[in-house]
Simulated assay, not measured.
Amino acid sequence: PFAAAVDEEGRFPQEALDALVANDLHAVHVPESYGGAGADALATVIVIEEVARVCGASSLIPAVNKLGSLPVVLSGSEELKAKYLGPLAAGEAMFSYALSEPDAGSDAAGMKTRAVRDGDFWVLNGVKRWITNAGVSEYYTVMAVTDPDKRSKGISAFVVEKSDEGVSFGAPEKKLGIKGSPTREVYLDNVRIPADRMIGAEGTGFATAMKTLDHTRVTIAAQAIGIAQGALDYAKGYVKERKQFGKPIADFQGVQFMLADMAMKLEAARQLTYAAAAKSERVDADLTFFGAAAKCFASDVAMEVT
């Protein structure tokens, strides 16, 4: 019920977060062994899709909680999982994903953020850009260069906490949509973190990042499907109400064709996305293709339907 106000005011949908946490739908992917719901990839997709039907910004709460924490799930030590997945599952903290930089979006391997070893600590310096839910999330998976000579094999992943000294945030970006989900820069200024906050072995960060995206592109496809479904639901109601030439415009064949095309393409996108989610759950060899195809196709369908 707060979706319109959240969009108009460009504020974080706190009411949605509270409702999701109260119903244990804010991070359903966390395994039961860490206090989570233990939902599989398809169930996670359905949660995101259903929330996105009424609010695209709110759907990014379960989606980005998965994106931010999946590197820990995939590659983190048992200690790291216990420390960070528990509070996430309990709804005490949100997780964001900090990969992109001003000069390293698609070319993620070209990142400049550095992490330098100092005894039992790592010291991080750099800027991350376009970080979803930045400033609201307590935890951040941050990719940083630990060995500049090795390019992608010299990138490592770390968990950075919002409260760590030297962590700050830029102003929220002004966006065309999804305004309730803050997108901000994350500044790392001599952020000193314990060495055990590295996710996986040194130099495996980029591989973990790419593996994470294979799984989580499917969740953005789900967001697109939900947005498209919400638009179609609205359109179906509207065409029955609006009258022209003495009858509802739903009676005109030209309008019926449009609705049929919308429903047909939406269902094709949904089936592709659910198939990709099943592949994500099984970690099939062709997940990279299916995840990317679902994200691209569903996004295009959402644009066309809306």
Results as ranks from 00 to 15, higher is better:
103 D>V: 07
108 A>Q: 08
127 V>A: 04
121 F>W: 03
97 Y>L: 03
97 Y>T: 00
107 D>N: 12
106 S>C: 03
109 A>T: 00
124 L>E: 06
106 S>A: 13
122 W>Y: 15
127 V>K: 12
102 P>A: 01
112 K>I: 05
124 L>R: 10
116 V>Y: 08
96 S>D: 01
118 D>I: 01
95 F>I: 03
121 F>V: 00
112 K>T: 10
122 W>T: 01
95 F>V: 00
101 E>H: 03
96 S>T: 13
117 R>T: 02
124 L>M: 10
112 K>Q: 13
104 A>M: 03
119 G>L: 11
98 A>R: 00
101 E>C: 04
99 L>F: 08
106 S>N: 10
107 D>S: 09
102 P>S: 05
112 K>V: 05
118 D>C: 06
125 N>T: 13
124 L>G: 07
96 S>L: 01
125 N>A: 11
100 S>W: 04
123 V>Q: 10
102 P>M: 06
119 G>M: 13
105 G>K: 11
123 V>Y: 09
119 G>S: 14
105 G>V: 12
125 N>S: 14
105 G>A: 10
127 V>Y: 06
123 V>T: 11
100 S>C: 10
125 N>G: 12
108 A>F: 10
98 A>H: 02
99 L>D: 02
101 E>N: 02
110 G>R: 11
110 G>W: 07
100 S>I: 04
111 M>N: 05
103 D>E: 10
96 S>A: 14
123 V>S: 09
97 Y>E: 01
125 N>W: 08
127 V>C: 03
111 M>A: 07
101 E>T: 01
110 G>F: 08
113 T>P: 13
104 A>D: 01
103 D>A: 05
97 Y>K: 06
120 D>R: 12
123 V>G: 09
117 R>F: 08
102 P>E: 02
99 L>P: 01
115 A>G: 14
115 A>C: 13
121 F>H: 15
110 G>I: 03
100 S>Y: 08
121 F>I: 02
116 V>E: 15
98 A>L: 01
96 S>R: 04
111 M>D: 05
119 G>V: 01
98 A>P: 01
100 S>D: 10
97 Y>G: 00
96 S>F: 03
100 S>E: 12
117 R>C: 08
112 K>W: 07
114 R>V: 09
106 S>V: 11
107 D>M: 11
110 G>T: 06
103 D>C: 00
116 V>C: 13
100 S>K: 09
98 A>C: 09
122 W>S: 00
116 V>A: 15
113 T>E: 13
110 G>S: 15
109 A>V: 04
96 S>Q: 06
124 L>N: 07
107 D>I: 07
